[in-house]
Amino acid sequence: MLEIRGLHKQYGKQIALNGLDLVVSRGETLVIMGPSGCGKSTTIRCINRLSEPDSGEILVDGQSILGFTGRDLREFRRSVGFVFQQFNLISRLSVIDNVMFHLVLAGLPKDEANHRAKMALDKVGLLHHGHKQPANLSGGEQQRVGIARALASSPSLMLWDEPTASLDPILVGEVLEVMEELVRTTQTTMVIVTHEASFAQKVAHKIALMDKGVVVEEGPPRLIFENPQSDIGRKYQRLIAS
């Protein structure tokens, strides 16, 4: 489904990705973990071209996406759901409009888009909040709206960029629940960047540990956390144990 080869990305003099390689199979849930600044967010931003890699290759279903421009790029992005750490909701739009507006702009009839938006909101338990403005929702609810927005277009690939990182610890649970539910109930390929080790242990088919722009360890959660081969893995092991 997704294959990343030798990905490089540099911000000024700071190297974010330094020849990253990753493979994600269809329907697989990959959790990327690692210390801050190791290149996790950059990786998934490069996957949907929110950041342009300096070199390397990203293949989705065997097709390189780095050459996409214009309509092709937009089509590709519509097939990829993206959940942001900061929710990134359109503040002037209501909840329901936030979820459906991109569908309408993609050419879907408004009624159909509305229907799909309501379904997505229902999945995240916010159907009754559709008329509200995002500012009137809690952080967890706003993130769930963000999840619903990503789900509304029925993506084949979901990218999660630390979805709980900016939430109060009390609100993290409701988001993780939704995410767990989604992983369980959908066959969507997911790449999740998170620091939530226990969550990763629960939902991930595969965990990739990153450090300094490369994957230092990769494998099933049990293998990673029980017999870590890298320093980062051992740190997470200690974290889970504690």
């Binding site: 929110l50 937009r74 942001f84 359109i90 991109h102 702009l105």
Partner: peptide, 26 residues
């Protein structure tokens, strides 16, 4: 609001749509 623009990009909106629906209205 760069976050909103980024959201628009990630949702497959064209630049003109981003400008019309996200940037200019605010």
């Amino acid at each position: 609001h760069t976050n909103e623009i980024m959201a628009g990009q990630s949702l497959g909106l064209s630049d003109v749509q981003i400008m019309r629906e996200i940037v200019i209205p605010v």
